[in-house]
Write a protein that binds this DNA or RNA. Structure first.
Length: 491
RNA sequence: CGGGAUGUAGCGCAGCUUGGUAGCGUGCUUCGUUCGGGACGAAGAGGUCGCAAGUUCGAAUCUUGUCAUCCCGACCA
């Protein structure tokens, strides 16, 4: 019993850290702040990526790849963009190593200094817009709808597996349009695509909204976001979609001739989700026994575990198990028959529960005498008996049910932890003691936002889309306000 | 960059006060018995004690320096 997790109640962040390691998702690397994504964690990312990639293509986007390195001068073209990223950039200054004079390893060759230093991309707007400039002459060249799957580097002070690492994997979409309206439409289309993916595949309910000016992406005119509430009452930004206006077009001089033969700057968007989504997934569904994964993206949907005493029993059990495996595979359900002899069944149960496999089937010699197998669902930890000939049909339904159930559970949690508050005292109390989302009036100024953050550590997570308009008074300043915004402490 | 802590077997740790053959748990290897919720026994493999200098007959242990990592703050998807 040495492998138990710290419970969420004991120490939520320790629980998270241990879970990532023990569920075999990822581990820290020798390079500070960087992670090794292990096969099980990477399989999860691949499943997420595959679904998203299909969604992007269905909405008319194409994949491309732009360089990892960006000339330093590019980053300084757009003023607020530089300001946003300058403090966390890795810089390449040399291109060669040589044997050290004392023959103890290698040193940077001082003669290999680069004429212009290169920045390891923290995001690709600048390199992409400098390229788009050459691709765009006429309105006939628009829109450009491109996505890239890539790694980026942001030199973070404090890192945590998946939630914030110095290097992470993501996708970044970069689109160019003729009109402001079309670009805004694209920005909104993508944020809804993200919400659709995160809710319907990852089973994580999200709030869709707009960022305030201070939380906005550096260089954006408007930032749309999806925010998810974690089990510790903190909010996590799970994806962003930016309307960039003509900021980058102007910075990189990207103009096109419109139908009236007049030069215009193009309108831009960019949008992304990262491996951080895996952090959101873990913290939304998992429990003190380990990971809980939504069937639609789980690397392994069903595991079958045999129980037997001797070879004769093993043969019988395996025959039934293998038949179930085959039938599940025919229905495109991923399944593993774990007949390793070196571990006992109880050990395997705990292992797969830690890894969040949605369904487990136990086939025991004693079961077979009664023509039954045991079906276990990870989300509720319930066990049921089924006859081998119908178990596969039941599992198809069960996987659906688990997907739905964990979403409903997460949604109920969010609703329970979203408070409408009208006084400053109550606001402080809820943020301090209960956590979760707090819906409150705000006077719309950055000063008030900053003062609230200073006092409570809570920030405005978003201004929900289609927000009901109502007269009210700012929670902090008492000034008039016409809508509520969502506050929370955040990751 | 401030404040605190830690470096000893793959992992988790003890040993250091009072210097004298480097230990425990777990994991690993082999064999046997087990097998319905993290089995048990036996036999094994595995360590420049972070690094460097110093004190000493002798340093994991004492001294000095140095490097690294982790935690708490300022910055962030």
């Amino acid at each position: 019993m040495a492998e138990l997790l710290t419970t969420r109640k004991e120490n939520y962040s320790q629980w998270y850290n241990e879970l990532v390691i023990k569920a075999n998702l990822a581990e820290n690397s020798v390079v500070r702040g960087c992670m090794v994504i292990k096969p099980y964690g990477y399989a999860l990312w691949e499943n997420m990526r595959d679904v998203l990639d299909k969604m992007f293509k269905q909405t008319g986007h194409q994949n491309a790849y732009f360089p990892l390195f960006i000339p330093k001068s590019y980053l300084s073209r757009e003023a607020s963009h530089v300001e946003g990223f300058a403090k966390e950039c890795a810089v390449v200054t040399h291109y060669r190593l040589k044997q050290s004079p004392d023959n103890e390893g290698v040193i940077v060759d001082p003669d290999s200094k680069l004429e212009e230093e290169l920045i390891v991309r923290p995001t690709s707007e600048t390199i992409i817009w400098s390229t788009y400039k050459n691709w765009i002459q006429s309105y006939r060249d628009l829109p450009i709808l491109i996505n890239q799957w890539a790694n980026v580097v942001r030199w973070e002070m404090r890192t945590r597996l998946f939630l914030r690492t110095a290097e992470f994997l993501w996708q970044e979409g970069h689109t160019a349009h003729q009109t402001k309206e079309e670009a805004i439409e694209e920005t909104e289309k993508i944020i809804h695509l993200y919400a659709d993916f995160v809710e319907n595949y990852m089973a994580v309910p999200v709030m869709v909204g707009l960022k305030t000016a201070s939380e906005r992406f550096a260089g954006a005119v408007e930032t749309y976001c999806i925010e998810a509430l974690m089990q510790d009452g903190k909010s996590l930004q799970a994806g962003t979609s930016h309307f960039l206006g003509q900021n980058f077009a102007k910075a990189f001089d990207v103009q096109f001739l419109n139908k009236e033969n007049k030069l215009e700057y193009v309108w831009a968007t960019s949008w992304g989700v990262s491996t951080r989504l895996i952090g959101a997934l873990i913290m939304t569904h998992s429990d003190d026994k380990g990971l809980v994964l939504p069937p639609k993206i789980a690397p392994l949907q069903v595991v079958i575990i045999p129980i037997y005493r001797n070879e004769e029993q093993e043969a019988k059990v395996s025959e039934v198990a293998n038949a179930i495996v085959k039938e599940l595979q025919q229905k495109n359900i991923s399944v593993k028959y774990d007949n390793r002899d070196e571990y006992r069944s109880g050990w395997k149960f705990n292992e797969y529960e830690m890894q969040g496999v949605p369904v487990r089937i136990t086939v025991g010699a004693r079961d077979l005498e009664k023509n039954q197998v045991e079906v276990f669902r990870r989300d509720t930890m319930d066990k049921k008996l089924a006859t081998p000939d119908v178990v596969v049909d039941e599992i198809v339904d069960l996987l659906e049910d688990i997907q739905q159930n964990i979403f409903n559970k997460a949604l109920a949690f969010r609703e329970k932890n979203t408070c409408v508050v009208d006084t400053w005292e109550e606001f402080k109390d809820v943020i301090e003691n209960k956590g979760g989302f707090v819906s409150a009036h705000w006077d719309g100024t950055a000063e008030t936002e900053e003062a609230i953050k200073e006092a409570t550590k809570a920030t405005i997570r978003c201004i929900p889309l289609n927000n009901p308009q109502e007269e009210g008074k700012c929670i902090f300043s008492g000034k008039p306000s016409k809508e509520r915004v969502l506050f929370a402490k955040s990751y």
